[in-house]
Write a protein that binds this DNA or RNA. Structure first.
Length: 265
DNA sequence: CCCCATGTTCGACA
DNA sequence: GTGTCGAACATGGG
């Protein structure tokens, strides 16, 4: 499910527990989401610590606790975060639950493609260091984008936009939305864009990221009908710009929705 | 039964 | 090194 805006939304969902201590932890020790961490140690170490704040980077979240404890979460394909009454009883897919003073913070993930990391120490964790510029931030500028395009010049743009090292947080629907708004065919190779199209691509990356964060990232609102977003989910949809049928093809290994009449190479 | 899914990684291959 | 492809992970929905 989650791309950068949904991730930001879920981060805020857990912020109702800010300033509270972890009273106890319930988790499924064998759940696949703990494959790169020690679930038992998480339960033992995090109990009693106070939740101080959180940040996101791309599709990753970092939750900070007292005494140098850091909980990293990636939601994978089907993960989500929620908050509920602290008397809750975890169901089958609620693999990690932090019972706080006034609420319970819950990580649900049916498919378990997500993952949980944990770190305690004076320095921040290695897995939260040397992170690339995020597309919605000011240090991600036209020059930086041009550099990315040049260094992957033979890649189809759809595949490149899904590369988390270069475009952290952009996922399948955002990549399609950006290319549709920029009127660029998703199979266009990165190195073949004219200066005009590079500028247009940059402009649409910023627009889609910033607007998605504003609309979805705050209270899970729906993007405007003028976006591809609401027309792309089922086959047989129509392009909101032309009224013509949308096309679906596998590009960069993922189902890609685009409007052939207006997205040219 | 079939196919599809907002993600990532890995091995095989050209 | 580049890039592509399919499979794998595990579960649910249509």
């Amino acid at each position: 499910m989650p791309e950068l805006a949904e991730v930001e939304y879920y981060r805020k969902v857990w912020s109702v527990g800010t300033g509270e201590a972890v009273r106890r932890i319930r988790l499924h020790p064998q759940a696949r989401i703990f494959r790169e961490s020690n679930s038992t140690a998480i339960g033992q170490t995090l109990t009693g610590k106070t939740f101080t704040n959180s940040i996101t980077h791309g599709k990753k979240m970092l939750f900070r606790f007292s005494e140098g404890c850091y909980l990293g979460i990636h939601l994978g394909m089907s993960g989500s975060l929620s908050a509920c009454a602290k008397e809750m009883v975890p169901s089958r897919h609620e693999h990690l639950v932090l019972i706080m003073e006034t609420c319970a913070l819950v990580l649900t993930d049916p498919r378990m493609f997500g993952k949980v990391l944990f770190h305690q120490g004076d320095a921040p964790p290695d897995w939260w260091a040397n992170l690339p510029p995020q597309p919605q931030e000011a240090d991600f500028d036209q020059r930086y984008l041009n550099h990315i395009l040049e260094s992957h010049r033979r890649q189809p743009l759809k595949a490149l936009l899904l590369n988390q090292s270069e475009f952290p947080g952009i996922g399948n629907w955002m990549a399609d939305e950006i290319l549709w708004q920029a009127r660029i065919h998703p199979a266009t190779t990165a190195g073949s864009l004219s200066p005009y199209k590079r500028k247009k691509l940059f402009n649409r990356i910023k627009h889609v990221c910033v607007e998605a964060l504003r609309i979805i990232g705050t209270d899970w609102g729906d993007p405007p009908e003028s976006w591809l977003f609401s027309h792309r989910w089922k086959r047989g949809g129509f392009c909101p710009a032309t009224g013509k049928p949308l096309a679906f093809e596998t590009i960069g290994g993922r189902t890609t929705c685009f409007s052939p009449a207006i997205q040219k190479y």
